[in-house]
Design a binder for these strands. Structure first.
Lengths: 204, 204
DNA sequence: TCTAGGAAAGTGGACGTTCATTCATTAAAG
DNA sequence: CTTTAATGAATGAACGTCCACTTTCCTAGA
């Protein structure tokens, strides 16, 4: 059948999604018009609707893509050992790497997009579910690790594993906000201090 | 001059602002139409423009109001001692009270609004300045307190005061996000765990 | 190897709707 | 009776989406 290659189709889809991502990061989901995305992508208006049913579907796709990237970032930090029973040091280092990545200039656009996703999750149930699922995995992993460490008496027993996991994630989220508002935040100092704190409450 | 009382004017202004706040918390700034606010407030469209030059000015007013409320919340937690040189326990308790307030059901709408403010700050320079200013005060206060505590050797010297202050604020911000996404988050466990952590890194 | 035909890729102006804002007008207060 | 508060239909711009149309590419028949 006369079609174009599959590679071309996925490339076009990515072309649109990348443009949409840039627009959404810059202006938010609802201050970005379809025309904006059309201009940014260099593609005609009509064609966009061959790849996405509408703006809402594009937003969902962007949110999915964002969480996939986040997941990849977390897994990359674990140095690809493939070990399901991660050690404390491995997970802690992956966490610190994640916090370190906040300070990289090339990550800024991605972080800005993330903040828009977080705000949209407040309003749209489908996106809220995606965000929750994206956070659930890392949280459960961390909580299990902390729980195990408590068994070894390495972590004080009065710390609730799930609560502590939530707090660690909260630190990441809050630092993303502060960095996005003020690029001059000293990320190195944050990481060093966070490392010191981790050593105090979850010694290896 | 034939006018209505000043009290009436400020009441009307608040009537509009309250309605706008409810709409913005529910739908975000840019999915809320002026018609929505008009309906929610029970006031005619034209009258709104006697009190606010336009939608943008209303958003600014809402952001200001939000930070004033936050400031009041923080000061209320310090039990009105009026002491400029706050003690560690006083500030720590104010901080924990602030985190505790996240769990109060009647605060949810306010938190949802806050998340919208944070996202808008990414895009709009004027709002970003307001948000930064709102965070700067508490951060400086906390950093100074930590710095003083380090002088007394109560806090490890390898913790950067400003970084630690940022992390504490980040915890608040992240927990707001998580609570807004999932009301069933166990706030009591969070506060208890956070209290234990505070005792470890900033002993009194 | 060449070419006609069909199917999908791609275009961009048109469409109905919704938006923020205005203004001619009425109601009410002093 | 003058001044201001208050109304809400009107306005034009901008929005998301659609669709009639053109271009491009693959296949089939010679």
């Amino acid at each position: 059948m006369p079609k174009v290659s599959d590679a071309h189709l996925t490339a076009r889809r990515r072309q649109i999604l990348d443009a949409a991502g840039r627009c959404f990061a810059r202006d938010g989901f609802h201050r970005t018009s379809m025309q904006d995305i059309v201009h940014e992508s260099g593609i005609s208006a009509g064609l966009v609707y061959r790849y996405f049913a509408g703006k809402d579907e594009m937003i969902i796709a962007i949110v999915n893509q964002w969480h996939e990237r986040r997941q990849a970032l977390i897994e990359a930090g674990q140095h690809a050992t493939g070990d399901a029973n991660e050690s404390r040091d491995l997970v802690a280092e992956a966490y610190l790497d994640l916090v370190r990545s906040i300070g990289q200039p090339q990550a800024l656009e991605d972080l800005r997009l993330g903040v828009q996703v977080w705000a949209e999750a407040v309003r749209t149930p489908a996106i809220r579910e995606l965000v929750r699922r994206g956070v659930d995995g890392p949280r459960t992993t961390a909580a299990n690790l902390i729980s195990r460490a408590q068994g070894n008496s390495a972590v004080p027993a009065d710390l609730d594993p799930d609560a502590l996991a939530r707090i660690l994630i909260a630190i990441y989220q809050g630092l993303v906000l502060q960095t996005v508002w003020d690029e001059s935040v000293d990320n190195d100092a944050l990481v060093a201090t966070l490392e010191a704190i981790l050593d105090m409450i979850i010694p290896s």
